[in-house]
């Protein structure tokens, strides 16, 4: 069943892709086959494979239970939030919390997670920013 749903998504994606390819504007420069042909081929392959998924699905994958799904969803949300908040709060502060969350969810006690988060954040800051000179997000306090 999962494969069939996936095939459905794939088919929708292929149709969307071919439609999006058909509205690619021409430019003043032209070549023999133009900017649309190759995307059409790619979209065609996508669609064909999706049809195969629908017609001949593989055996059902081992989906995790709702709790694990929630866990992954939450982790992804925290990472997205992290990316969004980087310029607001700066690297050091954001990283403490993002690392602490992940460590906590992987089974460390809350207090130890905060300690790990702080150590990771400072460690990365020292190694990558102070020693190696990479640019990290600057927050309101300059770090």
């Amino acid at each position: 069943m999962s494969d069939r749903i996936f095939g459905g998504f794939g088919l929708a994606l292929a149709i969307f892709y071919i439609w999006a390819a058909s509205i690619i504007p021409d430019s003043f420069m032209v070549d023999v086959i133009g900017p649309r042909t190759f995307p059409y081929i790619v979209g065609g392959v996508l669609g064909l494979c999706s049809l195969i998924f629908i017609l001949r699905p593989d055996s059902e994958p081992d989906w995790p239970h709702f709790r694990e799904l929630l866990e992954i969803g939450m982790a992804a949300a925290v990472m997205l939030l992290y990316g969004w908040m980087l310029p607001e709060f700066g690297f050091l502060i954001s990283t403490v919390f993002a690392t602490a969350y992940l460590t906590w969810r992987l089974g460390t006690t809350p207090l130890m997670s905060l300690v790990t988060g702080a150590l990771t954040s400072v460690g990365i800051y020292v190694v990558f920013h102070l020693i190696l000179g990479l640019s990290l997000a600057k927050g309101p306090f300059g770090f």
Partner: peptide, 25 residues
Amino acid sequence: SAFAAAFGLGIAMIGSDSQTGSQRF
């Protein structure tokens, strides 16, 4: 495998076309 390859190729098409400069996707 074929789906995966086409998917990757499809992503590569995003952006301006290297030959004509048309904006794609």
